[in-house]
Amino acid sequence: MAHALSGPRKRSSGPRSKLDLMPYLFILPAVVIYVVFNLGPVLASFFLSFFRWDLLAPTTEFIGFKHYDFILNDDKFWNALSHNFIFLLLAVIIPVSMGLFLAVFIYEIRRGRVFFRAALFLPAIFSGVVIAYVWKWIYHPFAGVLNPTLELIGLGAFTQSWLGNPKIALYSTFIAYTWASFGYSMVIFLAGLQDISTDIFDAARVDGANFWQKLFWITIPCLYDVFTFVITLRIFTAMGVFGVIYILTGGGPFYSSDVIDIYVFRMIGNFEMGWATAAATVNTIVVVCISTGFIKWREWRSWSS
């Protein structure tokens, strides 16, 4: 037995240099694609933010940190960034908890599991543009279904201009975002739930634990790494939200639902490439700081416990 195990080891240690190169060769295409299509544009964007360039002119003018100075002193930038933070806060609470509860519900039921899983995941596979247009008509003040439904169920006091009221326009877009995104969280949680040993739940049942006790003392702690992944995903999508808001409100009324990506898009539309890339760079730094900080905090908590 020992001989059988040692044989291949000896053979593999012979042409070591060749074997060591193989993994790199395999990942080379992915690295090239990543550098060309991801890292390259990010670095180019960062580089561009120090120049005045209108996308067309063959010459650029180096202006140092002037764009950053403008961006950081622009109320509209901070207004947009604050909306991203509101979106982020809501996105890590609502779609994540909805996803968790629905995953637990589907996990618990015996019949119709496949149907509910498919039905609840369905919105997540639609294009964001389609979802935005569907919600645009749901919110329509004259032909939409939301206001009449509220009146029908006795909640007529809550009917209003969902996209036209600057106080709630951002939250109306968030509802559409949630509808499109909770399905992802749900399937990831569901996959995580299936990895938890049923013995633990059986033992809890024998000990008389109720649903909430099982949820808080078994399910959520066992899904620690899944939570980290799902929340990190939400950080990225919330800080980069664009399509739903662009179609529903265009960032209005009067910038009340403006977010950074729409701010950047407006700059690009105006051929202000330097301003746009400076704003995008600041947003990237914010996203990297939040997501890295969050992941490090989770690692520290995991290690300390």
């Binding site: 329509h140 004259f142 036209g164 009221n165 600057p166 009324p253």
Partner: peptide
């Protein structure tokens, strides 16, 4: 018409 900010040009 009411809700001028709640509907777009085409609507």
């Amino acid at each position: 018409n009411p809700e001028p900010l709640g509907i777009d040009y085409n609507q």
